[in-house]
Write a protein that binds this DNA or RNA. Structure first.
Lengths: 211, 211
DNA sequence: CCGGATCCGGGTTGATACTG
DNA sequence: CAGTATCAACCCGGATCCGG
């Protein structure tokens, strides 16, 4: 394995996760939890299969990913982050935050997948009225759903629909991102095809422009 | 320029700074401020000169680095981070923090440079008694000095000697890192060749094991 | 379908030499 | 000092194939 051979935290981190595709693989596993090989391929459009296989081997031997033989009904191998792998989340969130402003002028031909919304929402959603009751919001994009859960001041975001949603927001992923970032007022949101159902006041706790 | 073509903050960030050596160049500029080309080469042992030149061009066109023609007495071009470039600091600190635990078992043959201490110290030094008076500490490693400045609860770390130091710590970079991380007790520190001069109580505000 | 392995063309990297 | 030029070795991406 190639190394920078520098006695520096950043350099040793990059020795392990600085290769092309590596951090994006960790991103997928952070968002989705346990993944099959083909789930990873779908979430990483453009990756060559040999690279995915090789990166997974490297990540496994670095103790960042663990391979797990799932029993039926799954009956296949699952890839999962170890504790050490999950510890990369703050670094990945910061990098994503830095890159977010460039996202506006969408690179032409860029792929978009709804579940990529999870990380940005994790960073910039804050409960503006934390003392109110617990609530949950469903975000629908394409055929995927995200759950936003407000509980005692904390905002949790995860893949999958909430058990029971106080409000539902539907739209295209790019537009949803702008919407939750507060860049769309009411008129712009509905013009962008964003539909809101249910309790608007719950939504207003995290998106000022809804109020 | 190669791109992941994914509409995701992390992916676009890596499009710009995910290439080999790129984040390490940013690290150098974060620590040292304006740099000459050869300063960068010294701080990045192992980089090929053509790669350094190419990365600097890419960083410049991405708006992360600015080239500046310095007047005499410097009379050469300086490379400096833009505002956008300095905004990478949180991400770099988090990545360095993640990599730090691996630093303990030093990769054999790894280069060590004193100024690389600046980033780790920036993260994990905290003033444990913030209400006391302002103070400053000089850290000497080889022929380079760092300044640690305590001011109203904040800890600032930068390259260069402080104007006037209340205490001075001298040693090898690797050992100094362990020392400031609190992994060395008094005996271990002096056995490791770490020398402390001046006001020990000032040092104890940031390093518990000195007390 | 799932989880890869293999092969190949082209692009990137790294070491060295050289230049204004 | 601040790079460019050259070239070999390696890595990446795409396509194809293969055993469960």
């Amino acid at each position: 394995m190639r190394s920078y051979k520098q006695h520096c935290g950043l350099a040793t981190a990059l020795d392990l996760v600085g290769d092309r595709w590596t951090l994006l693989i960790v991103r997928e596993l952070l968002i989705r939890g346990g993944c099959r090989y083909t789930d990873l391929q779908k979430g990483l459009p453009g990756i060559a299969t040999n690279l995915l296989a090789e990166r997974l081997r490297e990540l496994e031997s670095a103790g960042i990913v663990a391979r797990e033989e799932a029993p039926p009904p799954v009956a296949t191998t699952l890839f999962r982050l170890t504790e050490r792998g999950r510890a990369l989340e703050p670094a990945i969130l910061q990098l994503g935050l830095w890159g977010a402003p460039l996202l506006a002028r969408g690179a032409k031909g860029a792929a978009t997948q709804p579940h990529w919304l999870v990380l940005p929402l994790k960073i910039f959603l804050k409960d503006r009225t934390p003392r109110e009751r617990d609530a949950s919001i469903e975000v629908r994009a394409g055929r995927e759903s995200l759950a936003i859960e407000l509980s005692s001041g904390a905002v949790k975001v995860r893949l999958g629909a909430p058990e029971q949603a106080d409000a539902t927001v539907t739209g295209k992923p790019e537009k949803l991102l702008e919407f939750f970032a507060g860049k769309l007022d009411k008129a712009a949101a509905s013009a962008a095809g964003i539909a809101i159902e249910g309790a608007r006041d719950v939504l207003a706790r995290i998106v000022p422009s809804v109020a």
